[in-house]
């Protein structure tokens, strides 16, 4: 267990981060090169003002027509993404570890809030799962990989919550927590989770086309 812990909390962290950052940069750069070569329009028409205008209308809850059309989905998806990003980054326990490794630290959220956000993320995953099962238009599009990704995302939160609250086998859960977090991080660039990288670009490009050429709103 000690070797395993030392491995997952040492070298594997580096591996996960290198894959995450390296993979993300690779995906973005190779996409940009491809765009330069094959889709001249993307660079020609990309316009930061209109890209941001569009992005803002889509990253603010209820700021687009479609968000207003689906209030539950909107509330859940925003809560989910906020929890997904903010919890690990501003978690006291993570910050302590980072501080002890790299001598950098930042504001940490209270543990109670982290608990709530974690539960929100887990509950959102359940919501998404049910949504994929129940709504015909979503079920029709869903493939097995969509469920796998949901599990990959939920796992670090479930195991983290578990080990924090010291439920039975929390040592094992702790290892699983570290491992699942690393797996999730590493697969981001190469799965549908890459929507994290491409959202600003696809939305921004559509915003640019609508704002700059079509002179119309796209939200």
């Amino acid at each position: 267990m000690h070797d395993l812990y030392a491995f997952v909390s040492g070298p594997l962290v580096w591996v996960a981060f290198i894959i995450f950052f390296g993979g993300s940069i690779y995906r973005l750069v190779s996409m940009a090169i491809l765009a330069k070569k094959k889709d001249g329009v993307v660079f020609e028409y990309f316009n930061f003002k209109y890209a941001l205008r569009s992005i803002f209308h889509w990253i603010i809850p209820f700021a687009s027509t479609n968000w207003r059309l689906h209030p539950w989905m909107t509330i859940v998806t925003f809560a989910f993404h906020i929890g997904l990003i903010f919890t690990p980054v501003f978690l006291f326990a993570h910050i302590i570890l980072i501080k002890e490794s790299w001598d950098i630290s930042w504001w940490a959220m209270p543990d109670g809030l982290a608990d709530i956000l974690t539960l929100v993320v887990i509950a959102s995953c359940v919501f998404f799962f049910v949504r994929r099962q129940v709504l015909p238009e979503v079920k029709y599009l869903t493939s097995t990989s969509d469920y796998v990704i949901l599990v990959l995302v939920a796992l670090p939160f479930i195991t983290g919550f578990w080990t924090y609250h010291q439920w039975p086998e929390s040592t094992f859960m702790g290892i699983l927590h570290i491992l699942s977090g690393e797996v999730m991080l590493a697969v981001i660039p190469f799965t549908k989770l890459s929507h994290m990288l491409f959202f600003p670009i696809t939305r921004g490009y559509m915003g640019s086309e609508f704002g700059g050429v079509r002179q119309a709103k796209d939200w």
Binding site: V13, I96, L97, W102, G174
Partner: peptide, 15 residues
């Protein structure tokens, strides 16, 4: 002794 580096995003704690 080897320094345990980089425990970012891990839920191991104030050991």
């Amino acid at each position: 002794m080897r320094k345990t580096l980089g425990l970012l995003f891990l839920f191991s704690f104030l050991a």
